Simulated scan of single mutants.
Amino acid sequence: MDISPLSTTAPAAKPAASDRAAAEKAGQEFEALMVGQMLESMFAGLEAGHAFGGGQGERTWRSFMLQEYGKAIAEAGTLGIGRMVQADVARLYGQTAEGSQG
């Protein structure tokens, strides 16, 4: 019985659906993180105001609110950062699959 650790079947030319989904998720998560950090920098100099209740509560929960804003912006896909990251991740998955053929 042959128990070879190397597969003799060549990987598909196109990335698997799971690879595409993973690349899309990575791109969207990166964009959400980056936009959230950008918003934190923008709001850093602002005092807690009366728009959201103000006071210690707003200072405490502002970072969570900005993270959610980042997620919402990333889900909308209007900036395109996630798509660029997705393309790079997908390209890297493709190179990994091609490199494992040999």
Rank of each mutant, 00 (worst) to 15 (best):
E58L: 11
G102R: 15
G57Q: 05
A76W: 03
A76E: 11
G70L: 07
S100Y: 14
A13N: 01
D88V: 09
S41H: 10
A32K: 01
L46S: 02
I81D: 11
A72Y: 05
L6E: 02
A17C: 03
V85S: 11
I81W: 06
G49L: 00
G54Q: 06
M65G: 10
I3P: 00
S41W: 00
G54P: 05
R20V: 14
G77V: 03
V89L: 07
T96K: 15
E31S: 01
A16W: 03
A48Y: 04
M34S: 08
R91S: 13
L39S: 03
S41Q: 12
R83E: 08
Q28T: 13
R62N: 06
A12E: 11
A13H: 03
Q56N: 03
V89I: 15
G94I: 00
A44I: 00
A22E: 04
M42F: 12
Q86M: 06
G94P: 01
A97N: 14
G94D: 07
A48C: 04
A74H: 14
S63M: 09
S18N: 14
F30I: 06
G102Q: 10
Q95S: 12
E98T: 11
T78L: 07
Q67R: 15
A97M: 10
A26V: 08
L46P: 01
Y93N: 04
F43N: 04
G27N: 06
G80R: 09
A21H: 05
E58D: 04
A32I: 00
L33Q: 05
T96Q: 12
M34Y: 12
A23S: 13
S41P: 00
I81C: 08
A10W: 02
G57R: 00
V35C: 03
P15Q: 14
A26M: 09
M42E: 00
G57N: 05
M1E: 12
Y93S: 05
E68W: 02
M34Q: 13
S41N: 08
Q67E: 07
E40A: 14
R91G: 12
R83H: 04
R59E: 13
A48R: 06
A90F: 15
G55M: 03
G45W: 00
W61T: 05
A26R: 12
G53Y: 01
F64A: 10
D88A: 14
G27C: 06
Q37L: 14
A32E: 02
A17L: 13
I3D: 09
G49Y: 00
A32H: 00
T9L: 05
P15S: 06
S100K: 15
L79C: 08
A17S: 15
T96G: 11
G49N: 01
M34P: 02
E29N: 12
L79V: 01
F43L: 10
F43M: 13
E75R: 15
V85N: 01
R83I: 07
F30A: 14
P11Y: 10
G53S: 07
R59H: 05
A97C: 07
